[in-house]
Simulated assay, not measured.
Amino acid sequence: MSLLLALDASSSACSAALLNRQPGRDDAIVARFAQTPREHTRRLLPMVDEVLAEAGVSPAQLDAVAFGRGPGSFTGLRIAAGVAQGLAYGLDRPLIGVSTLEALALGGHLRYRYRYLLTALDARMGEIYAGAWRIENGWPVALMSEAVLAPERLVLPREHEDHDWVGLGSGWSLWDAMPAQIQASLGQCVEDVDPEAADMVRLAANAFDRGEAQAPQDAQPVYLRDQVAWKKAR
């Protein structure tokens, strides 16, 4: 049996989820999700308490802690990483960072059965965080490296251009700046979706089973844009 807790604050939403994985049974997940702009610090830990209480699990029973490692909101990523590291240190448990773009892709498949997904989050400053995914055996497989770029530079992965693609995430609010090829290739576009801990905890459980958990001090946010503060100052 595995018990994993995941939390996320990478967007305007805040979420927490607990997964109970037992051999021969479907995964049981208890989750909380809410749109909480600028309230992540106040809402995240109560959500953690709520999912643990509903599942009847104490923190000491957890096997690992996971968090949305990014890309996403610079402040939100630091909040989630800080809370997750604090929990992992206190419980002496490993930590797992989960890609927010991959979580978006998994959520799109689980909820809508999409198979080829372009996930994009608004990175501000006229840029997007982007990733491309194909679903294989129910799980996302990356078809490009995650990147931060201007929307007009987004391209489809070679050898997969003819598939029916779906766009997911807040980055598609910059639709008018997307290349004509991208616009023509998308069969559908869903902007109002955010990464969720309920999807992250599934990905984290797979990583845990593969032995990919890290020591708390080694799991860090992934910003993609390394010069955030400098660019804003300029």
Rank of each mutant, 00 (worst) to 15 (best):
S2I: 13
L3R: 06
A6H: 02
L7C: 09
S12W: 05
C14Y: 00
S15P: 01
L18Q: 02
L18G: 01
N20K: 10
P23H: 04
R25L: 14
D26N: 12
D27G: 07
D27C: 07
I29F: 00
I29S: 00
A31T: 06
R32F: 00
R32N: 03
F33A: 07
F33Y: 14
A34S: 13
Q35C: 09
Q35F: 06
P37K: 11
E39T: 10
L44E: 02
L45D: 03
P46R: 12
P46C: 07
P46Q: 12
M47P: 02
V57S: 05
S58T: 14
A60H: 12
D63N: 15
V65F: 04
R69G: 08
P71K: 07
F74W: 13
F74H: 09
T75V: 08
T75M: 07
G76T: 05
L77M: 12
R78N: 10
I79R: 01
A80P: 04
A81E: 02
G82E: 04
V83I: 14
A84Q: 02
Q85E: 08
Q85R: 13
L87K: 01
A88Q: 03
Y89R: 14
G90K: 11
D92F: 03
R93I: 09
R93Q: 06
G97Y: 03
S99C: 09
S99G: 06
T100R: 00
E102V: 02
A105H: 03
L106P: 00
L106H: 03
G108Q: 02
G108T: 03
H109S: 08
R111T: 14
Y112N: 14
Y114V: 07
R115P: 05
Y116V: 10
A120Y: 05
L121W: 00
D122S: 03
A123G: 06
A123Y: 04
R124F: 05
R124Q: 13
M125H: 13
M125Y: 13
G126F: 04
E127V: 10
Y129T: 06
Y129N: 09
A130R: 12
A130T: 13
W133M: 11
G138F: 09
P140K: 03
M144A: 15
M144H: 11
S145N: 15
E146S: 07
A147I: 10
A150R: 15
P151D: 12
E152Y: 03
R153N: 15
V155Q: 15
R158P: 10
E159R: 14
H160W: 15
H163C: 14
D164E: 14
W165S: 07
G171M: 04
G171P: 02
G171F: 02
W172N: 04
S173P: 06
D176C: 08
A177Y: 04
M178N: 04
P179H: 05
P179Q: 08
Q181W: 10
A184F: 09
G187Y: 11
Q188M: 10
P195N: 07
A197F: 00
A197M: 01
D199G: 03
R202N: 06
R202I: 11
R202Y: 05
A204N: 03
A205I: 05
A205Y: 01
N206M: 15
N206W: 08
A207H: 06
D209Y: 05
E212A: 12
A213Y: 08
P216A: 03
P216K: 06
P216S: 06
Q217M: 11
A219Y: 00
A219S: 07
Q220R: 13
L224F: 04
Q227G: 09
V228H: 08
V228M: 06
A229F: 05
K232S: 06
A233F: 11
R234G: 10
